[in-house]
Design a binder for these strands. Structure first.
Length: 576
DNA sequence: GCCGTTTTCGGCCCGACTGTTTTCAGTCG
């Protein structure tokens, strides 16, 4: 896909134009275009081939011409010209907190600063501090920004961020004078990783709340603290650096507006504010106003209602069609719709609990069924089962199932997809199981064609119910496999084989984009925690959020079914 | 550079906090 390359070029151009001091609206147009192309569900080359580039919102004649230039030449002339005007390391300086385009330009022009090393040298010998508009404090902020960038520069996974945020929210809730307290930002929208934590607190007087907040135990550094707003750095419990947390305090009548505002996304909010402006209104974090009159602000639903929308769930607020949907937002599934877990391991392979203990864990979470899917023989490190062992294991699962009341156990396997696309068990073994998850666990760096053929072969097998963690990514540790997603999703839709949304926060695989593609293609989905322990099952909410971000409807998610309906689905799938 | 059931020109989202300032530019979200 050239989409990400083109998006990168446009955002690079925007950065450089900003340093150059060009018109900010033109710069913004490039950023909008970059984002639109990055979010595109299909290859931009295909759109260009259909002559439909201008249909992409944010892409006009100028941008379209540059896209075509890139597709033909592999580069864009004006981008190359910009690159020649500035040293290659300059853009990196923008990533340092406290340094924006104006300061970077000044540093380059006055002191010839072109890299982080130059920057450090200028601070060390005091040249930076003597510049007009700079001072000791600026130098200190830049050094702190550099330190943060080096030790914690990357985004924090949802599964790390969510518990930290919950703890901070509970602490703030206990402050005297605090009313409603909510987590906002990309965490509330359920993104797989977050850059920082945002919180909104309702209180008549902000100052005491802010003061207490900055004194909380986990706070390692205060970046800013005013009357209504504070930014701090908090230590990550896993020791992997720090994460920024912003708290905003507003009065009761503004809480909904502030929560809406700080939940974002920025792009979604800009759309809403444009709609407000068109009606002669004003939308900000204090409310929706017509002149002096407050039309809404106490709660989020009121803001959306006044603007003519139903409540738009946070997961959809990405300006990916939720505004245009104009009320026709799909019937998104909810956490409470989940009735079972369809991917779980026991001590038979690499899980930590017995079958009985896993059943107990599932029942504690209100589930009606559980599929036991231990590893197959090729996953040697995970203690994969031989064909004989998996059948013996299945008999044991069924024996227990016969004794259970109001609960269904499915005897299954997580069967490896081998490098040649064949499965780790022969069909006659798979046929004797109730439920089969097929997953790739090894040889993840084969070329795109081979890798795609592997996945497709598994999807075509009638005994395979679901393709497990389809991209193979491990957030921050391993890239997704190079796959032809169009083809995989089309095949899944045609064969009726489900695609997994692996809910483990290290995976979240499918990701939101691919869920959206799968949903539009009419694929079945299964949200699985891939549980190796009882606690793992609690990650289901991350998977549900990812599904919602991909506009998944309850009707297409298998583990919202009753056990009886699921059994029928399996029978129908095998009969195809 | 994009966009248009008021517009093909003239707009383009909004506010808090900070540092280095004598009233505000820069940065951030």
């Amino acid at each position: 896909m050239s989409n990400s390359q083109i998006a990168q070029i446009f955002s690079q151009m925007a950065d450089l134009m900003e340093i150059k001091g060009e018109d900010r609206f033109r710069i913004n147009a490039y950023r909008t275009a970059a984002r639109a192309i990055a979010d595109l569900g299909e290859d931009v080359a295909d759109v260009a081939a259909r002559n439909e580039l201008l249909k992409i919102p944010g892409v006009g004649k100028g941008t379209a011409a540059k896209i075509i230039e890139f597709l033909r030449e592999g580069k864009i002339g004006v981008h190359q010209e910009l690159l020649e005007q500035y040293p290659p390391g300059l853009r990196q300086l923008l990533e340092i907190r406290g340094l924006g385009p104006r300061k970077v330009e000044t540093l380059y022009r006055e002191l010839n600063v072109a890299s982080i090393a130059d920057l450090r040298a200028c601070i060390a010998d005091g040249r930076l501090q003597r510049l007009k508009g700079f001072g000791e404090k600026t130098a200190k902020v830049i050094l702190e920004g550099l330190e943060f960038l080096e030790q914690a520069g990357q985004r924090t996974p949802l599964g790390i961020a969510a518990p930290i945020a919950a703890e901070l929210r509970d602490a703030v809730s206990r402050f005297p004078g605090a009313g409603r307290v909510e987590i906002a930002g990309s965490l509330r929208r359920g993104r797989d990783t977050v850059a920082d934590l945002d919180m909104v607190c309702e209180a008549a007087d902000g100052k005491p709340i802010i003061e207490q907040f900055t004194r909380l135990g986990p706070v390692a550094q205060i970046l800013a603290a005013g009357e209504t707003k504070a930014s701090v750095l908090v230590d990550r419990p896993d020791g992997a650096g720090q994460i920024q947390c912003d708290l905003r305090v507003v009065p009761s009548e503004s809480f909904g507006a502030a929560l809406q505002y700080f939940t974002g996304s920025k792009e979604h909010n800009i759309r809403l504010r444009e709609i407000a402006v068109k009606r002669g209104w004003l939308l900000n974090e204090y409310g929706l106003f017509k002149g002096e009159t407050r039309l809404a602000g106490h709660d989020e639903a009121g803001i959306y209602a006044k603007l003519g929308f139903p409540f738009i769930p946070p997961e959809l607020r990405e300006n990916r069609g939720e505004i245009e949907a104009d009320g026709h937002v799909p019937d998104l599934l909810e956490y409470g719709d989940i009735r079972g877990e369809l991917h779980a391991h026991t001590t038979a392979s690499d899980g930590r609990l017995t079958i009985e203990e896993m059943v107990e864990a599932a029942r504690e979470r209100g589930y009606q069924y559980l599929a036991i899917t231990d590893h197959s023989r090729s996953s040697v490190i995970a203690g994969g089962l031989s064909a004989e062992d998996v059948l013996r294991h299945a008999a044991e699962i069924r024996a227990l199932n016969a004794r259970l009341k109001d609960f269904t156990l499915l005897a299954g396997a997580e069967c490896d997809i081998l490098p040649d696309g064949s499965l780790d068990y022969p069909d006659e073994v798979l046929a004797q199981l109730d439920w089969v998850v097929a997953s790739i666990h090894a040889s993840q760096h084969l070329d795109r064609d081979t890798q795609t053929r592997r996945s497709i072969a598994a999807l075509e097998n009638p005994y395979v119910c679901v393709l497990g963690h389809p991209s193979g990514r491990l957030l921050g540790r391993r890239d997704a496999m190079d796959l032809d997603w169009d083809l995989i999703i089309k095949t899944a839709a045609r064969t009726g084989t489900a695609l997994e949304i692996n809910a483990s926060w290290q995976r979240l695989d499918l990701n939101d984009h691919h869920v959206r593609m799968a949903t539009e293609a009419g694929c079945w989905l299964s949200i699985n925690t891939d549980a190796h322990s009882a606690a793992d099952m609690d990650q289901m909410s991350y998977g549900v959020q990812t599904a919602r971000r991909g506009w998944a409807r309850k009707a297409r998610v298998l583990n919202t079914f009753t056990a009886a309906r699921l059994q029928k689905w399996i029978a129908a799938k095998r009969a195809r």
